[in-house]
Structure formats: structure tokens, C-alpha cells
Design a protein around this nucleic acid. Structure first.
Length: 681
RNA sequence: AGGCCCGUAGCUCAGUUGGUUAGAGCGCUACCUUGACACGGUAGAGGUCUGGGGUUCGAGUCCCCACGGGCCUACCA
């Protein structure tokens, strides 16, 4: 279809055609002689293995043309018609010309056959019209000298790229960098500062419009109509915004900045260019770290795009679910290196979390009002200096539930801080979620509920102080993810004078004193007690007991300290497991009636034999026995392997042994229970 | 075609240097309109981590291959 010039490459018919290279062919219709050449660009497996070369209308052909010094003939005009070099076709519309050429070739008997071929045609993103490749004069920026120091800066770690795997992409792109076309045929942007004299086409480049041509002195000058690529100007952003090229105070203070946050799809467009420009113009990298965040996709996984109209409307979604929910949702899904598929389900889940926090706070303040009727003041319970001394002790010791809560809080604070410094925002968000909902609401508030209005004013006061101190920390932890909700609730607590916003308060940092409680073992004991309550509830559910039906239960553990602790906490356990009484047995539980749950550490029983479904119970037991036996067998195999014992770290071996011991006890208990059930039926 | 990434519960995804019975949210099942919350509570079910080799005492995790999917860049006579 190429109607002008040039050449071929007969490689496939190496034997058949090689002799033709260097000779000339006559281009039909144009009657122009064109050379036959050989070039490795050609795919000899495709079609005839020979192809015409049109350097002015194809990027590959352009390269070939340069290699073989072929003339570049542009056969089109700016308005998409055929130009003078198109000979007889000049003035025709390009589509018309193509049809006419086929007809003419046919008429001359030169057309052998027509085959279908799918070709990638460039389309204008907005107008959808076909973009015709045409050779033209453009300004290019030589990139190698700019890229090299920019590669080195990242290699040396002067700039950290997060997530790590994007470093490779950066290197790959930078090492294979091509010269950068700066000319854009748009009607907005920075005009290219080049002037041409009309007489001799000399080029004069200057900051201000020159008075005359630098070469021939002509005053008849015309500025290049093209503008600079927007990314060229954008690349200057880190320092031009700070007053550069002046050595302003801002520039000195804030350049380089610490962190750039942007989408990973813009790493090459913008980030790489800022780095290159920054190093070139200022001698310094523009920032110390680049966090490349995920792209938000629609529920069906499409990239959101304004021009494609595939975006979700954040304003509409914010109105529906709340901006806090949106923010939390995005953060909780921002695992580095993956995209975020945003769906309404997930937003709803985040909204539910916000709702949960709001209701928990409502509960606290409603109860506080009642408590204040007895003379207490919020300032005495939750002023900053009061909160700072938490956790408070009651009758000489910090209540177990508070030891546990503050230890959990300390771990959460550590986790969140750690996650944030490492750009692992999803872990931070999920950590707060787990603490606030799973620990604070589900366990802590439920646990201390009756104590909030305790007749023992001293006890109630302690409870309130501990509660508010933890609540305040939790709010501040949550604040980066749910700014509005936490701000609102924070203002309901008494703040230090001048406490204008939670955003100006300090972010919680690790409290070693709280984490210490874990070492003492309080957390482990509390976890055991949670296990006791869950086991009892599980039995209730299996028995299909009415939720309000209070039933008697028995408890036994070979460990005396657990028995003692369960005894001390029996009020709470009784309430949370809906029992009529909890009896700590003086000896192992006998095999009589009811339903039992066991762990390696303890056994609980609800004595309600008439409602026990023995068949279902046996199925459950067998399943658990099977799973345990498998786990035990694999551990025994591993621990029996001398190579393993000699090479695995001590910690792993010890842990395995401990777990194995527990599992053996558990298995024995399950087996006994099963045997007893089978004997009974 | 080249480069990068992904494949884990029904769905969407976590899983930091290989190490003790692989987690979450949603959905699902059963029970509960219990005085903060049904946008809720309690208890559950559900995965031979795409497949095949390899390294290792030990692999969801490291290496190779295959299959499937995505993105970026380039593009075919």
C-alpha cells in the first residue's frame, strides 16, 4: 500500500532473492526506482518475507530508513490528505486514495491477491479518529546522561522505592531509556522556546523571544508552534514550587523532601523524571522515598478512568457510607504491590466499623451520665493527667482484664507504629480494627459493664479511669484512618488546655510498662479464661439452649493457678457464659452426664444430659480426634528425625514438643469422652 | 514480542527474613428484636495454598517448567 519509495528485504528466500539486494525495483503507479535492501527487522516467517519500507510513515521503517540512508518522503498533508509527493493521488483524501490505489493496481494486473490482516491502528483517545504515523521534526531530550545518575541514586539507596519490586521496573526502564520527545501538538502548555527565521530556517533557542536570528540576523522570526510535554514541566515540580532557581528559604529548608506518594502507574511519567530533573538542576535527589500506592479499581476489576467513564464517584459513595468509611476501607486494603478492588460490600464493612465505634462511645457516655449522678466528674476520670497514670490498681493490683487490655493495647500500638513506618497501611488499619472491635468492644466493655455502676464507688472509679485511658489511645490510633469520627469523640473527653484537635495530640507510642504484663503471664491466663467462656458458649449452642437459660457448669484444671483465677473471675465468667453457677471442681471431672469441652489445660462441663445429642457429639469428637491424630503423627515423625533435631533451631523444637505434649493430653481426653459416650449408647 | 506482577476458603484479599494445627472481611449455617450497636451479638461450617518437578531436616513462602489471568512498553509485511 505504500505508494512512495523504497525497499525490500529478501531474507526468507535467501537463496532465491539474495542476488537482488543492491539492485533496484520499480515502484508501480509512481514509476519511481527504489532500492532493494536487507534488514534484520523483517520477520521472514510472515507472508512473503519481503516488505516495503516507508520511513516517513512507520516507526520501524523509520529506523530501517536511517540505517540504510533512505529518503523520508511524507506523502500526506496536515489535514490528512495526500500531498504533492503522492503524485497522481495528490489532493485526495487518504481513505479514498487507498481504495483508488487498489483499483489502479488491479487495472494494471499487478495485484496478485488480498488477504485479511489485523493491524494495530493508533486511535485518538478522545475523537477515536485514526492517527496516521508521519515523520516530522520534533525536539528531543537526550536521556542517557540524565538517567545514569538517577539510576545510581536509587542503587545507592539515596531514594527508597516502596514497594520494593518497583525498583526493578524502575531500573529496567531507566537502563533502556529512549530519548524523550518533548514536542506536543497541543494548544496549551509551555511553548517550546525555539524560533525559526523564515528565510533560512535557522533555529534560535532562548529564554526570551530573541530580537533576531542568531545565525543570519533575520528579524522575521516564528516560534515553534508545539508545546513541551506536560511531564517536562511536571518534572520540575519538586523544586520549582519552592522558588527555584532562586535559593529561597523554602528551597533550602524543604528540598529534598522526605516522601513522595503517587500511583505506581506514574513511576515513569513523573517520578523518574522528577528524579532526573532534580539531580540535573539542583545536584540533589528531590525526595528520600517514593511510596507507590495501589490503583483503585471498580468492583469488576477495571481501572478507573475519567475518559473511559469507568470511575466510581467518590462523592456519592462518601455520602452513602461516610468519608471515614471510605478512608478506612482504602487503607485497610492498601497492601503494597496489589490493586484495590473497591466494592460497596467493603465500604459497608468499614461503615459498620465506624458505627460500632460510635455506638460503643455512646454506651460509655450514657453510662457516665448515670455515674456522674453519684458525684463523679469526667475530669476526675478522664483528664489527661489521670489517663496518663493508667492502668489503675484496685485493692492492690491491676485487675486481670485491664492487664490483658493494656498489654493488647501496647502490642497494637507497636504494630500500628511499625506498620506505618514501613508503609504497611493495611496492617495498621487491620490492627486497630481488631483491637477496637475484637478486644475493646467484644471483651473489655462486656467484661466491665456491671462494674461501671458498681455500688463500690472506688471500684467503679478505677474501672472508668482505666476504660477512658484505653479508649483515648484507641481513638488516637484510629484517627489517621477515621479522622472525623475520632475528632468528634475525642472532644467529648476532657482535653489539655488548648487541645483544639485530636490531630494535634500525640500519636500513641509503645508503652513498655504495659507490655510487661504479658511477661508476668496475665495475658496468657486471660486468654485461657476467654477459652473457658468460649467453650461453655459452644456447649450451649450445641445443646441448643435458650440464650437466656442459665445452667450450672463445672470447671477443672490440673494447674492450680488457673483454678484459682477462674474462681476469682467466676462472676464475669458466669455472666458471659450465662450460667446459674460455676463450680471449680476439687478433682478431675467425673464422667457423668452433660456435655464436656476440653483443652490440654482445662475441662468444662454443662450438666444438662437430657439435651445432649449423643450422635452429633460423637461425630464431632471423631472429627476432632482424626485431626489431632494427624497433627500428632506429623510432629512425632518430625521430632523423631535426627537430622531435623540437629539442624532445626532450638526454639522450633521446644515449641513443637510443647504443642505435641498438649495435643496428646487433648487427644486422650477426647478418646475417653468418646469411649464413655459409646458405652452409654 | 519484551518487562513486571498475580493464581491461597463460595467472593475479595492478607500471610515481614522458609519453621509449631494457613488468617481476615463479606457471604453461608444455627440460635438471639439481651437497655450501646440487627450497620448488632454468640457459636459454627468451609482451604491437599493452579498443576508438575527441584533445593531443604522442613516450602503457601526459594528455583525451574507448564497452564491461567492482569498491567506497562512496543508492534507485525
Amino acid at each position: 500500500m505504500g505508494r512512495k519509495s523504497f525497499s525490500w528485504w529478501p531474507r526468507r528466500g535467501r537463496k532465491r532473492c539474495w542476488h537482488l539486494v543492491g539492485k533496484k525495483a520499480l515502484l508501480p503507479l509512481m514509476n519511481r526506482e527504489i532500492p532493494i535492501i536487507a534488514d534484520a527487522m523483517v520477520d521472514r516467517e510472515f507472508g512473503t518475507g519481503a516488505v516495503k519500507i516507508t520511513p516517513a510513515h512507520d516507526p520501524n521503517d523509520f529506523e530501517v530508513g536511517r540505517r540504510h540512508k533512505l529518503p523520508e518522503i511524507d506523502v500526506m498533508t496536515d489535514d490528512g490528505k495526500m500531498g504533492a509527493p503522492a503524485g497522481a493521488y495528490a489532493g485526495m483524501d487518504r481513505f479514498e486514495a487507498r481504495k483508488k490505489i487498489v483499483e489502479d493496481l488491479k487495472a494494471l494486473g499487478l495485484l496478485e491477491k488480498i488477504t485479511e490482516h489485523t493491524n494495530a491502528v493508533g486511535l485518538c483517545e478522545r475523537s477515536k479518529t485514526i492517527v496516521e504515523p508521519r515523520a516530522s521534526t520534533q525536539w528531543f531530550c537526550k536521556m542517557k546522561p540524565l538517567a545514569e545518575p538517577a539510576i545510581a541514586a536509587v542503587e545507592r539507596g539515596e531514594i527508597q522505592i516502596v514497594p520494593d519490586n518497583r525498583r526493578e521496573e524502575y531500573f529496567n526502564w531507566m537502563r533502556n531509556i529512549r530519548d524523550w520527545t518533548l514536542s506536543r501538538q497541543l494548544w496549551w502548555g509551555h511553548r517550546i522556546p525555539a524560533w525559526y527565521c523564515k528565510e533560512n530556517k535557522h533555529v534560535t533557542v532562548a529564554r526570551e523571544k530573541p530580537a533576531k536570528c542568531a545565525t543570519c540576523g533575520s528579524v522575521n522570526l516564528e516560534q515553534d508552534p508545539d508545546v513541551l510535554d506536560t511531564w517536562f514541566s511536571s518534572g520540575l515540580w519538586p523544586f520549582s514550587t519552592l522558588g527555584w532557581p532562586e535559593e529561597t528559604a523554602d528551597f533550602k529548608k524543604y528540598y529534598p523532601t522526605s516522601l513522595l506518594i503517587t500511583g505506581y502507574d506514574i513511576l515513569f511519567f513523573w517520578v523518574a523524571r522528577m528524579i532526573m530533573m532534580g539531580i540535573h538542576f539542583t545536584g540533589k535527589v528531590p525526595f528520600r522515598a517514593v511510596y507507590l500506592h495501589s490503583l483503585v479499581r471498580t468492583g469488576s476489576g477495571e481501572k478507573m478512568s475519567k475518559s473511559k467513564g469507568t470511575g466510581l464517584d467518590p462523592v456519592a459513595l462518601n455520602q452513602q457510607y461516610g468519608t471515614d468509611a471510605m478512608r478506612f476501607c482504602l487503607a485497610s486494603m492498601a497492601a503494597p504491590g496489589t490493586d484495590i478492588v473497591l466494592s460497596e460490600d467493603k465500604l459497608a464493612s468499614a461503615r459498620n466499623f465506624a458505627n460500632k465505634i460510635w455506638n460503643a462511645a455512646r454506651f460509655l457516655f450514657l453510662n457516665l451520665d448515670k455515674f456522674e449522678e453519684g458525684g463523679a466528674k469526667l475530669e476526675e476520670l478522664a483528664a489527661p493527667e489521670v489517663r496518663a497514670k493508667a492502668p489503675y490498681a484496685y485493692q492492690g493490683s491491676v485487675p486481670l482484664v485491664d492487664q490483658w487490655l493494656y498489654s493488647r493495647l501496647a502490642s497494637t500500638i507497636e504494630l500500628v507504629n511499625d506498620a506505618l513506618t514501613n508503609y504497611r497501611f493495611h496492617e495498621a488499619a487491620q490492627g486497630v480494627y481488631q483491637f477496637f472491635w475484637g478486644d475493646f468492644c467484644d471483651w473489655y466493655i462486656e467484661w466491665v459493664k456491671p462494674d461501671l455502676q458498681s455500688a463500690d464507688r472506688e471500684q467503679a472509679t478505677i474501672v472508668w479511669k482505666n476504660l477512658f485511658a484505653a479508649f483515648d489511645d484507641a481513638l488516637r490510633l484510629l484517627h489517621p484512618f477515621m479522622p472525623f469520627l475520632t475528632e468528634e469523640l475525642w472532644h467529648q473527653l476532657p482535653q489539655r488546655s488548648g487541645g483544639k484537635s485530636i490531630a494535634l495530640d500525640t500519636f500513641p507510642t509503645a508503652r513498655k510498662a504495659w507490655a510487661q504484663e504479658k511477661i508476668v503471664g496475665a495475658v496468657d491466663i486471660f486468654t485461657q479464661i476467654q477459652g473457658v467462656i468460649t467453650a461453655l458458649r459452644n456447649i450451649r449452642a450445641e445443646m441448643r439452649l435458650d440464650a437466656k437459660k442459665k445452667v450450672p457448669a463445672q470447671f477443672w484444671s490440673t494447674a492450680e493457678f488457673i483454678r484459682n483465677r477462674v474462681h476469682i473471675e467466676s462472676d464475669a465468667i458466669t455472666r458471659l457464659a450465662v450460667l446459674s453457677e460455676l463450680k471449680v471442681s476439687p478433682a478431675a471431672l467425673g464422667q457423668v452426664g452433660g456435655s464436656v469441652r476440653s483443652t490440654a489445660q482445662f475441662d468444662v462441663r454443662i450438666a444438662y444430659s437430657d439435651t445432649v445429642d449423643a450422635t452429633a457429639e460423637k461425630v464431632r469428637l471423631k472429627k476432632e480426634i482424626e485431626g489431632l491424630e494427624k497433627a500428632i503423627a506429623s510432629k512425632e515423625r518430625q521430632l523423631g528425625d535426627e537430622t531435623f533435631r540437629s539442624r532445626a533451631p532450638e526454639k522450633i523444637i521446644k515449641g513443637l514438643e510443647a504443642t505435641l505434649a498438649g495435643q496428646r493430653i487433648e487427644l486422650q481426653k477426647l478418646k475417653d469422652r468418646l469411649a464413655q459416650l459409646e458405652k452409654g449408647s
